[in-house]
Amino acid sequence: MSFGRTDNAKGVQALLMSFALIMAAPFFAQQAHAQEKTVAQETVAQKAAAPGAKPAVLKTESELEKRVRAIGSKLRCPVCQGESIYDSHSDVAEEMKRLIAEKLKAGESEAKILDYFHDRYGNYILMEPPAEGIHWVIWVFPLFMGLMGLVFVMQFLLSNRQEAATEAKQQKKRAENPQTLHQDIEELHL
């Protein structure tokens, strides 16, 4: 039996290790990246410092670009019709992104920019319908569906449960009193 136990311990070990791996995996990526980025920058710096090498300029994404992404991801490209304008490479989408950037530079708020496009292209330009007017339907529907389904399944299970309980009671009665068996059969014939 000791043999078995060792193997079992091995199994638990394997379990814990796999568990750790699974848990760690998503941030592994993040952590590794956060630490190593400084290393990369050093490498870059070394390379830049090497004699004869042109100094490399590390460009980081501007705050502006981040805000353009935030807005552009909420707007749907009107010609590609499935993608957001941020993801799309089409001419109209590119021009819209440039316009968003200009408007942001001019100090306009995100809401105001979204309104600008909404006024000109209608609800179609938004990636999801606004929760107003008739469009409440699409937002409430999933919740409604879920509740309906739950109620239906619960009702199904509970009604069966009652039936099962009465059946069990009858069976018990039958077992106690063989005469009722006869009665049951008569009932069935009716």
Binding site: E36, V44, K59, E61
Partner: peptide, 18 residues
């Protein structure tokens, strides 16, 4: 993700890569 305009010799960094 990062979107930048790069000229020759310029760099961008994303994840563990430059």
């Amino acid at each position: 993700e990062a979107t930048v305009t790069l000229s020759k010799g310029e760099q961008v960094s994303v994840g563990p890569y430059t």
